[in-house]
């Protein structure tokens, strides 16, 4: 049994006065790809934000390799090896593609070289001087993942990487994810696209109204399809 890297228990979170996470509990083991599924507004993005330190008002516990994420200053979280790819991708419009790629500081050894990144995402090759937000949506998503790989982080929070993208691009991103998994990355993935999620994930958690309400192993997903569809309202 692989060790647990991320252990989240009874995590609560607020945007100002608005209480949106009501006790999220799940774990992610080393080398796993785990998804958070759930309807719009369930609290998936908020969960990632709470873990990455973007959401500041939190309660409960979240341990990464035994380090308490909730008491870690927000600019130190990345240095624990956690890379965050936000839902809105967060490509900076005042930075070139190259500057976007080089922005996050290297937090530990083992980060990818620019060459290795270009091999994974050939679309980014030769675009160095382009303004970041001039890239297509798919390319921005690749850039958002690529810049995290450079830092040497080994656990990635990935929020809806396929949202609004054409099938060919989705396929490319799926392949990249499989490559990352092979390389030993641990991934917490938020995804609405169930087909995509099934292709890459080991386990799935269902989030509903700010809580984790169920869990499925990827192997047993076919048998639980009815149940899952009911959760997702499909």
């Amino acid at each position: 049994m692989a060790e647990i890297r991320l252990q989240v228990s009874a995590l609560e979170g607020w945007y100002g006065e608005s209480h949106v996470l009501h006790g999220v509990t799940f774990d992610v083991k080393r080398g796993e790809v785990v998804t958070l599924l759930g309807r719009n507004g369930a609290g998936k993005t908020s969960t990632l934000r709470a873990l990455a330190g973007v959401m500041r008002k939190r309660r409960g516990s979240a341990l990464l390799d035994g380090h308490d994420l909730l008491s870690t200053p927000p600019h130190r979280v990345a240095h624990l090896g956690l890379g965050f790819v936000p839902e809105e991708r967060g490509i900076f419009s005042s930075l070139t593609v190259r500057e976007n790629l080089m922005l996050p500081p290297v937090v530990r050894q083992g980060g990818w070289s620019v060459d290795a990144i270009h091999e994974l995402f050939p679309n980014l090759k030769g675009r160095d001087t382009t303004t970041g937000t001039r890239l297509s949506g798919g390319e921005q998503q690749m850039l958002a993942i690529a810049r995290i790989l450079r830092t040497g982080c080994d656990i990635i929070l990935l929020d809806e990487p396929t949202e609004g993208l054409a099938p060919v691009i989705v396929e490319q991103i799926g392949k990249a994810l499989v490559r990352l998994k092979e390389k030993g990355f641990t991934v917490l993935l938020v995804e609405q696209n169930l087909n995509f999620a099934r292709g890459v994930a080991d386990r799935h958690y269902v989030v509903e109204q700010g809580r984790v309400v169920d869990e499925f192993a990827n192997d047993s997903l076919s048998a639980s399809m009815d149940q899952l569809n009911r959760y997702l309202g499909i």
Binding site: H75, V77, A78, G90, S93, L95, L103, P105, V107
Partner: peptide, 18 residues
């Protein structure tokens, strides 16, 4: 570049470890 990025989105830049 860090300065410009932090001007645009300080929270994300913080999450990157800056």
């Amino acid at each position: 570049a860090r300065l410009r990025a932090a001007t645009e989105n300080p929270k994300l830049v913080t999450a990157f470890g800056i």
